[in-house]
Design a protein around this nucleic acid. Sequence first.
DNA 1: ATCCGGGGTTGGACGGAGTCTAATCCGCAT
DNA 2: ATGCGGATTAGACTCCGTCCAACCCCGGAT
Lengths: 137, 137
Amino acid sequence: MKTEDARAALEAHRIQPSAQRLAVAEVVLDSTEHLSADEILARAQRRIPAISRATVYNTLATMVERRLVRSLVLTEGRVVFDPNTERHHHFIDEDTGRIHDIPWNALEVRGASSLPGLEVTEYGVVLRGRMKKRSRV
Amino acid sequence: MKTEDARAALEAHRIQPSAQRLAVAEVVLDSTEHLSADEILARAQRRIPAISRATVYNTLATMVERRLVRSLVLTEGRVVFDPNTERHHHFIDEDTGRIHDIPWNALEVRGASSLPGLEVTEYGVVLRGRMKKRSRV
DNA sequence: ATCCGGGGTTGGACGGAGTCTAATCCGCAT
DNA sequence: ATGCGGATTAGACTCCGTCCAACCCCGGAT
Ligand SMILES: [Mn+2]
Ligand SMILES: [Mn+2]
Ligand SMILES: [Zn+2]
Ligand SMILES: [Zn+2]
């Protein structure tokens, strides 16, 4: 992601674009993966070698608060950050541990908003399994 | 849960019923809550004060392996154990952090098993929100 | 009754992920 | 130049979970 795009994204969400925050935003907004804080730190350090862990955690927390990204807890000991803030589902590859996005309308969920006694603010399907080998690559 | 029920459950899943394992099984199988390992440890210690953390973790891991319980990762830094091994969904109360079971047929999910390229072994809906106040208690 | 072997248990060391804090840095307004 | 407030930093710290080596316990063999 270009620096100017990252800057625009930060500003659109009212986050002051410091050099460190730009580096974090470039990393996390660019990726289609679901990266952990420490992976984001490692990549941000390529841009700013002196960037600290605390700053990365602070920045990610701010970005979550301002809804620039979402944080997901799907596997043990690993919080990941999702630049895709549209509604979607998640598939966890049990072989690799990798998380894949499933488009919202690939599945149909009925009844989630009409559960008696519950005020549902968000929901999604979490799937686990394996990726099929493709017959020809 | 009665000790004999716990013993039967362990044996049905081919787990040797030691005194410590019985204590853990009584705690976790009895509860309708989703308890963390340390909560289970605390409750098991009421029965066996000397029971160690390692034993509780070992026993829970075995119980998960033998499918007597399931482990869930829904919130950060907190793995919980679910004695309900039937398929069901989960609602997380954002006020209290508590996890509530949603019966499988309270929701309808379509398309999960026909996603191209994916071999889905399990799935469920994770909902977040608040519990409505009841007009009269 | 004693010995023996192997699984079970234990406490403590260890490790990774995340939080907190106090000192420093930096950009900006005066 | 100076002062200010927010941002950044390193490191200490906590929490959850794992690992390990010693010990315990019990059933079977002698
Ligand atoms: Mn946005
Ligand atoms: Mn069973
Ligand atoms: Zn996603
Ligand atoms: Zn459950």
